[in-house]
Design a protein around this nucleic acid. Structure first.
Length: 496
DNA sequence: TTGTGTTTTATTGCCTCC
DNA sequence: GGAGGCAATAAAACACAA
């Protein structure tokens, strides 16, 4: 009797704990979810299932998480809109917000959203993010949001190269026709034919308003920077030369000459980055492990292909990304980033770390590094998303969506970032490889490398898997001539 | 250490669409 | 009617100041 009652109570306990106690998602899970969310705000059931399987969660949890995440985004959007509204009034740039943004007053957004854009149709392609304001975009940029979906005028390398990246990695398969994102060299086709048709090529209505908001943001950033953007000159007074032959070859680290360092000397000395590079990855949660195991099993299915000839291979990327990823094992050590650093976290943690460090990486590296960095302090991500957009000097590097007058600037930024990314990636890789590590350090690095790989694939694999299916399907259906043409077209579009 | 505020997660009910 | 999404709410987990 006693035993049974004890058992019962224990069972109750367990079941209560199971049911009642909420369980925090592990950093890897969060990272994967966030990454996935960045790509697909409204995952299909299939996606959810795959995600759930990959992350060791239930579909319900996945659904719930996405639901809450969307709410969070909405809330943020609202806050940002309010914040921007104040700012806009002061700068006098934007007046017509309500008409375009479809602000929700606790639920009314439904109608607004549907009225201006069908979120389900649009959000999976990142268009939804156009509703986000600067701070959000800074964050989104970190997460490599594809923003230039409408083809409005964003020539930023961040978005395009990111998309190339995604496509080359097969990470955005769901809403894309396979042939579109399967371009051999990661060309960037129009993201969503539907969306493109819907949105048109000219910003109007919603996008127009958004552009105005962005303009205000740009204005604010400029004010913060206190420096002139030269219409045709280099970014922020940074001069850069045309890409010399052999620029992508391994170079010795020369941070002093790095444009970003020039622009942001402080960031290059960030102690967190320094620490991040040193600490091995210690994130070892059960669920993480489970997820990683799943990923491991799937890794054999998805060979990593470097779609950027002349760029770093995956292992190369790892050398950096591991360092970043490895730093996640001490929330405490990063707590300074929560409250004290909370202002502009999106731009500090997002830009601060990732920006200057990101600058040294190729796009692929950036993607990896982001994940790795996310792991450094997942709280940063979570919390940072609640940060109000406070102008910060680090925003300078955020990918502020551009108005017409920003095109030249963004184009330059695109080129420059690309250039820097390639150069620095090589540098960092060479640093790590040529640093003459001690054997155990190498071991640690390799181990972190594996960890990072696993974590990276947490995100990659579910998408990639479905990508694979879609490809197989579409290849079977697709006329060979069409696929070839498509390939040729898209590959040519990559040329810069 | 504790109290308080914030964030995240889980649950539930309602609404809309198919 | 079922499925999916949104919003409200509660509660746990977390961050931080006193």
């Amino acid at each position: 009797m006693e035993e049974s009652s004890e058992l019962q109570s224990e069972e109750n306990k367990v079941s209560n704990e199971k049911n009642k106690k909420r369980k925090l998602k592990t950093p890897a899970q969060l990272k994967a979810l966030e990454d996935f969310y960045n790509e697909h705000k409204y995952p299909t059931e299939e996606m959810k299932l795959v995600l759930a399987e990959e992350l060791g969660l239930t579909e319900k949890q996945i659904s719930g998480w996405f639901c809450h995440r969307r709410l969070k985004d909405k809330r943020l959007m609202k806050d940002e809109a309010v914040a921007n509204g104040r700012q806009d009034r002061s700068s006098g740039v934007i007046q017509d917000r309500g008409s375009g943004l479809g602000q929700d007053s606790c639920g009314s957004s439904k109608h607004a959203d549907h009225r201006y854009l069908d979120p389900k149709e649009v959000e999976s392609h990142g268009l939804y993010n156009h509703e986000l304001s600067v701070a959000d975009m800074t964050h989104r940029r970190r997460n490599h949001y594809p923003e230039n979906v409408s083809g409005v005028d964003d020539t930023s390398s961040e978005s395009s190269s990111f998309l190339q990246e995604r496509f080359s990695q097969g990470q955005d398969p769901y809403d894309m026709e396979p042939s579109r994102h399967l371009t051999p060299n990661g060309a960037l086709p129009p993201l969503n034919p539907k969306g493109a048709v819907k949105m048109g090529h000219k910003p109007s209505g919603y996008l127009k308003v958004k552009g105005e908001i962005e303009h205000a943001a740009i204005t604010a950033v400029r004010k913060q920077l206190g420096r002139h953007y030269l219409e045709d000159g280099p970014l922020l007074g940074i001069e850069f030369d045309p890409l010399p032959p052999g620029a992508f070859e391994c170079q010795t680290a020369d941070t002093a000459n790095e444009p970003y360092s020039v622009a942001n000397p402080l960031l290059s000395n960030s102690p967190e980055i320094f620490a991040a590079k040193r600490q091995p990855s210690l994130s070892s949660d059960k669920q993480d492990k489970k997820a990683c195991q799943n990923i491991k099993q799937r890794q054999s299915l998805y060979g990593y292909t470097n779609n950027f000839p002349g760029r770093n291979t995956f292992p190369d990327l790892y050398e950096d990304s591991t360092g970043e990823a490895s730093a996640y094992n001490s929330n405490k050590s990063h707590r300074m980033s929560t409250k004290h650093g909370v202002e502009g976290m999106r731009s500090d943690s997002a830009s601060n770390h990732s920006d200057h460090y990101e600058e040294k990486l190729t796009v692929k590296q950036k993607t990896l590094m982001l994940h790795g960095y996310d792991n450094i302090n997942p709280k940063n991500i979570q919390r940072s998303e609640h940060v109000k957009s406070k102008p910060s000097s680090s925003i300078h590097n955020s990918r502020v969506p551009m108005d017409t007058e920003e095109r030249g600037l963004s184009a330059r930024m695109a080129k420059e970032e690309m250039f820097k990314g390639n150069r620095k990636a090589k540098n960092t890789y060479c640093d790590v490889e040529g640093a003459g590590m001690l054997s155990n350090e190498i071991m640690v690095a390799k181990r972190a490398k594996v960890d990072m790989l696993q974590q990276y694939n947490v995100k990659k694999s579910p998408v990639a898997e479905m990508e694979l299916k879609k490809i197989q399907r579409s290849v079977a259906e697709m006329p060979s001539s069409f696929s070839e043409d498509e390939t040729a077209d898209t590959s040519s579009s990559l040329d810069y």
